[in-house]
């Protein structure tokens, strides 16, 4: 149902949902466990993708294809630009997640812990710091 200003109700709901996803993702990332950190990373990636998608406006319209026999889409089609952005963003986010996962593996292998605050090889406790 379109609202004035070309905004649909679903976009408003998605704006709130994105905030919820980002908040949950951030909280998980700050929780201090590597696995929770990964979960948080995935949620924030999802939030970012939905955010770009909603910012390009939602329509129940056709996918952005040019029908056979036409030169341009005759009817209104979904916004192609954010879709192209998100498509690569998803894959890149996945690459980032894989790399993070590999690092988590390696860290656990080296340090024997997944508690992030116990990882102080680079900055040992006696080097500055107040804790």
């Amino acid at each position: 149902m379109p609202l004035p200003g070309g905004t649909t109700e679903m976009e408003i709901v998605l704006a709130i949902l994105v905030g919820l996803l980002a908040a949950s993702g951030a909280y998980m990332m700050m929780a201090g466990r590597l696995i929770a950190y990964l979960f948080g990373l995935i949620m924030i990636s999802n939030a970012a993708n939905i955010a770009i998608f909603a910012a390009g406006r939602l329509t129940y319209a056709e996918p952005p294809l040019v029908p056979d026999g036409e030169y341009t889409p005759m009817t209104e089609v979904a916004n192609a630009l954010p879709q192209a952005l998100i498509l690569t963003a998803i894959v890149i986010g996945f690459g980032l997640l894989s790399f993070a996962l590999a690092l988590v593996f390696r860290t656990y292998f080296e340090l024997g812990t997944t508690r992030m605050d116990d990882m102080r090889e680079a900055e040992p406790r006696n080097m500055g710091g107040n804790s």
Binding site: V91, F94, G95, S98, L101, A102, F105, R106, Y108, F109
Partner: peptide
């Protein structure tokens, strides 16, 4: 590129998992 990279990470993760 996508197929090769993702498969490479997949195999790598599984093998490293065995090592751990």
């Amino acid at each position: 590129a996508v197929a090769g990279t993702v498969s490479a990470i997949l195999f790598g993760l599984e093998e490293a998992g065995h090592a751990v």
